[in-house]
C-alpha cells in the first residue's frame, strides 16, 4: 500500500514565556492510503498538534513530515495551502461552517477556491455528497437551521467535496450526543470503505475508538500504537 503520510523524528516545541514546551517528541509515524486511523489520548497529550502536522497547518520544529510525497516543512505558505486544498479535507470539532452561506454553499466553497469545475459539475458533486451524507432535504438551509449532527454532516460533505486523499477530523464527535456521534463515525467509516479515503481523526472517546481500524495512542507527546478497542 502507498504511504500517504510519513512523519520522521518529528519534534514540535512551543515557546511559553521563557520556557519551551515540547508538544511532540521524536514522532515516527506512517499512515497508508485508505486507513481509518484514530489518534487517541488525553487532553493536552499532543493529538491536535500531531493532526496539525499531518494537516499541513503547522510545521515541525525538527524532523520531517511528508504528505502525499511532499515534505511540508520545505514548502512555503502558499504551497502548503495549495496542498491542503488539493489533498486534505478538514472536519472540525465545532463544525466551523460559514454561518450565512447555505449548507450547499458551504460545501461548494472549497470547489470555488479550487476554481477548476464548472457550475454544473460543482452542483452535481454537491448534490451527490448531500445524498451521501443523507442530508438532501436540508441542502438550502443555513447552518443555524440545522442540528449539531446535521452540521457535522455538512462539514463532512465539505471535507469530501474536493475528493481529497486524506480527511482529518479533530474530535469530530466532541460536540455531539453519543448516538449522533456514533452515527457520524459510522458515516465516516462507510465513506472510507466506499471511497478508499484515508481518515485520520483525534478523539479520547473510547466508543469512537472501537470503530477505528488503527489506534495511535499519544501520551505527553510520545506515540505508542495499540490495537483498536474491541
Amino acid at each position: 500500500m502507498e504511504n500517504i503520510v510519513e512523519l520522521k523524528q518529528v519534534v514540535k516545541e512551543y515557546p511559553l514565556g521563557k520556557l519551551t514546551v515540547r508538544a511532540l517528541s521524536d514522532i515516527n509515524l506512517t499512515i497508508e492510503k485508505g486507513e481509518f486511523t484514530v489518534i487517541a489520548g488525553p487532553s493536552g497529550s499532543g493529538k491536535t498538534t500531531l493532526l496539525n502536522m499531518v494537516g499541513c497547518v503547522d510545521t515541525p520544529s525538527s524532523g520531517s513530515v511528508t504528505v502525499r510525497g511532499q515534505r511540508i516543512e520545505q514548502l512555503g505558505d502558499r504551497a502548503r495551502t495549495q496542498l491542503r486544498l488539493a489533498e486534505l479535507g478538514f472536519i472540525f470539532q465545532t463544525f466551523n461552517l460559514i454561518p450565512d452561506l447555505t449548507a450547499a454553499q458551504n460545501v461548494e466553497f472549497p470547489l470555488l477556491l479550487q476554481g477548476t469545475l464548472t457550475k454544473k459539475e460543482r452542483q452535481r458533486r454537491v448534490a451527490e455528497l448531500f445524498e451521501l451524507v443523507d442530508l438532501t432535504p436540508q441542502i438550502k438551509q443555513r447552518p443555524n437551521e440545522l442540528s449539531g449532527g446535521q452540521r457535522q454532516r455538512v462539514a463532512i460533505a465539505r471535507a469530501l467535496v474536493t475528493q481529497p486523499g486524506i480527511v482529518l477530523a479533530d474530535e469530530p464527535t466532541a460536540n455531539l450526543d453519543s448516538v449522533t456521534g456514533l452515527n457520524i463515525i459510522d458515516l465516516m467509516k462507510d465513506l472510507n470503505q466506499k471511497r478508499q479515503t484515508t481518515f485520520i481523526f483525534s478523539t479520547h472517546d473510547q466508543r469512537v475508538m472501537q470503530h477505528a481500524q488503527r489506534v495511535i495512542q499519544i501520551v505527553d507527546g510520545c506515540l505508542s500504537e495499540g490495537a483498536p478497542a474491541s
Partner: peptide, 8 residues
C-alpha cells in the same frame, strides 16, 4: 477555517 480548507 477558510485558510485551513485551502483559502490563500
Amino acid at each position: 477555517t477558510i485558510r485551513a480548507i485551502g483559502g490563500q
